[in-house]
């Protein structure tokens, strides 16, 4: 390796790597609805925490579904931190596979705060309807 290349790599290799991680995180925030809080983009405290997102499945208690079930916890957790259609579908399929219902409706809601009116409410981010026959 040439000396100049070596010096440039040693000085700027790690910082460039750090920039790539941030760029990937920002890309995922834009395209996959990743929470700014996670993924190495240093966006903590820039938006309401993803734990305030709400998964709603009519006819089911989400707390009961995830209780003592690691796979459910991980799949539901992924939906909270990245509330997009792909993750919504994964949750819907998992619930259909592990329960006795023929179809399921899964919704993910996000919190909205309006400081002008002092209100806190929820808006529907994504929704999916899946039938067992389509699996």
């Amino acid at each position: 390796m040439k000396n100049v290349t070596k010096i440039v790599l040693l000085k700027y290799g790690i910082p460039v790597f750090a920039i790539i991680i941030v760029a990937v995180q920002l890309f995922l925030v834009k395209t996959k609805d990743l929470s700014r809080w996670k993924g190495g983009g240093y966006g903590m405290y820039t938006e309401i925490h993803y734990a305030y997102n709400q998964i709603y499945i009519p006819g089911f208690s989400v707390d009961s579904l995830v209780k003592d079930n690691e796979q459910m916890q991980s799949t539901f957790g992924r939906l909270l931190v990245m509330p997009n259609s792909d993750n919504l579908e994964k949750v819907a399929k998992l619930v259909l596979e592990t329960t006795h219902v023929d179809s399921i409706n899964v919704q993910i809601w996000k919190p909205i705060v309006n400081s002008k009116e002092g209100t806190y409410t929820r808006v529907l981010s994504h929704e999916i309807q899946v039938k067992k026959s389509s699996l």
């Binding site: 920002l26 700014r36 966006g43 405290y45 820039t46 938006e47 309401i48 705060v113 400081s115 806190y120």
Partner: peptide, 14 residues
């Protein structure tokens, strides 16, 4: 880049 942050809504809620 976060509208919730620059509007002050984030700090207001937390």
């Amino acid at each position: 880049l976060s509208p919730q942050f620059v509007s002050g809504d984030f700090y207001y809620s937390v």
